[in-house]
Structures are given as C-alpha cells and as structure tokens.
C-alpha cells in the first residue's frame, strides 16, 4: 500500500510534466491540424535553457532559491517561446495551405534540426545538475521501514503546473486571443473574413505551446536533475499519446491524458519491467488510437458522406 502511494505521487508528478507538453500538441493540432513533431524537442530546448540560466545565476552569486526559480522560469519560457515562434515562421507557415504531407515532413526535419543543434551546441553527454530544491515531507512510515515521501520538488512541480494551467485556461477561454484561437480552429477562412488575424493567432498558439513546453523542460530538470539532447523524442511521443488520450483539441483533456500516461508509466515500471516501459507507453498509444480515437474528452468526429 505504501509502495503504491509512493508510485502514485511519482506518477502524478511525471504526468504533470507530460500534460504540460501535451497542451502544446493539442493546441497546435486543434488549430492547424498538424502534429508538431518538433514539439518534444522544444521541450528539450526549454530544459537546456533552464539549465544554462540556472548555471549563470548561481555563478553570479545569487543564492535565494525562489528568485532563481522565478528568473529561470521566465527566461526559459521567453526564449523557448521565441524558438516556437521562429519554427512556425520558417518551417510551417510557408506550407500552411500545401499538400498535407509537406508540413509533417517539414516538422520531422525541424525535429532533427533541433536535436542535432543541441547536440552540436552543448555536446552529446548528459548534463547533470545538483539538486536545487531539497527537503520534503515524510507522509507515512511503514512497518517494514518503507517511507512514503513527498519532496518539495514534487510539490513545486504540481503547484506550478496547476497555476500555469489555470492561467492558460483563462487565456484561452476568456480573452480575445482565446476567442480568435477557437474561431481559427473552426474555420480559418471565415475567421479571417471576420477580422481575425489568422497568422498572428497561429503564431501565438505556437508561442504558448512552446512556453508551456519550456515549463515542462524546467520541471523535468528540477525533478530528474539532468537534461540531454535526445530526451525530447520519447517524451514528445508520450505527450502526444497523452493529448490523443485526453481528446485532441481539449486543454483539460491534455492534462488528464498526461496524468494517466504518467501514472501508467510509473506503475508499469514499478510492478512490471522498467525495460519495457516505453513499449508499454507506445502500446497504450496504439490501443487508444484504435479503440478511442476521439479520446476521453474529445468531440466525436462524424464522417461526412
């Protein structure tokens, strides 16, 4: 029971990270109808930028942890968002009304670019960081000495996720930008005729998605204490699974899907085998797509004849 409780906590934390990445997939898919293959790598870039910013701040002699965290968060969100914007501008916008396969291949190409760019710029080796946030709470001490712990990092990851999710949900449901996004999702031509700046709206979608991926990257860095150039690929596929599981196009769905994938992955590793945990995640993706293609919170798609 204690073991299970511990895995539950771990799963929720991992799921929060997946959920943050999944939002980027779901928003882009909703509005432009393409799988942004480079999104997982945007997450990886976010992690790297957080790492470098952190390193710089520490070497400048800053010691107040909350200040450091806030600055790292803002810097990595800002720069990563610019990555998202640039990629849309260079690789996707010229292909928006093109042949369907073209943007997908362009996205795959962009993914390779980002992976190899980080590898060249920062080296192939895994970058470890010392734990930034330490301490935690012991929730329960089992009779056999098994301790259920909730660390401060885990608390921060979950709280940050909730706060950012709340902000972005508000942004999408209550602001002008959010309304424009939903309009573009329905019908871009009509939205443009009604005075919505489609280009700008799509750009903003990529910017928001990338900013959230940067948060996920930073959380990943805090939680696991390392980044490497290839971490975006598998995380990206899992987050996409989460987006589909939750129902593509739905923000709460992406978060829910993320939590489920995080939990399943943690439980699988805990009770079955660690080697096959990615196989499990990919199998879930396949099963979900086959039996539940509209996801848990998605709208069913009626085939028009």
């Amino acid at each position: 029971m204690d073991y299970f409780a511990q895995q539950l906590i771990n799963g929720i934390v991992l799921g929060s990270i997946y959920g943050l990445i999944a939002i980027g997939y779901t928003m882009v898919y909703g509005i432009v109808g393409m799988i942004n293959f480079a999104h997982g790598d945007i997450f990886m870039i976010g992690g790297f930028i957080a790492l470098i910013t952190f390193l710089l701040l520490v070497s400048l002699g800053l010691t107040a942890v909350p200040v450091i965290l806030l600055i790292v968060l803002l810097v990595s969100m800002a720069i990563t968002a610019l990555y998202g914007w640039t990629i849309e501008r260079i690789a996707y916008r010229p292909l928006r009304h093109s042949f369907r396969l073209a943007p997908m291949l362009s996205a795959i190409g962009m993914s390779f670019v980002l992976i190899n760019y980080s590898q060249i710029a920062q080296g192939a080796r895994v970058k470890p960081v010392p734990p930034i946030i330490t301490g935690g709470y012991t929730l329960h001490e089992g009779s056999e000495g098994f301790v259920v712990r909730l660390s401060n990092v885990q608390i921060i990851v979950v709280i940050a996720t909730i706060v950012l999710l709340a902000i972005f949900t508000w942004l999408v449901s209550r602001t002008r930008l959010g309304r424009d996004m939903r309009a573009c999702e329905q019908d871009q031509t009509m939205a443009a005729l009604l005075g919505v700046d489609v280009d700008r709206t799509i750009s903003m979608t990529f910017v928001i998605g990338a900013a959230l991926a940067a948060v996920a990257g930073m959380m990943y860095l805090l939680y696991y204490g390392l980044v490497d150039f290839f971490m975006g690929f598998v995380a990206g596929i899992k987050a996409f699974t989460a987006a589909v599981l939750g129902g593509i196009g739905s923000l709460p769905g992406a978060m829910l899907g993320g939590l489920l994938i995080g939990l399943i992955e943690t439980m699988w590793s805990a009770y079955f085998s660690v080697e096959y945990k990615d196989v499990a995640a990919f199998s879930i993706l396949i099963v979900v797509l086959i039996f539940l293609p509209t996801g848990l919170l998605g709208r069913p798609e009626v085939e028009k004849v």
């Binding site: 870039i45 790297f48 930028i49 790492l51 470098i52 910013t53 390193l55 710089l56 810097v75 720069i79 760019y117 980080s118 710029a121 920062q122 080296g123 080796r125 895994v126 970058k127 470890p128």
Partner: peptide, 9 residues
C-alpha cells in the same frame, strides 16, 4: 544561451 554558453559535466 544555447551557443553563447557551453556547458559540460
């Protein structure tokens, strides 16, 4: 940050 600064273990 990505090119201006190089990190390594």
């Amino acid at each position: 940050l990505m090119i201006g600064i190089r990190t390594e273990a």
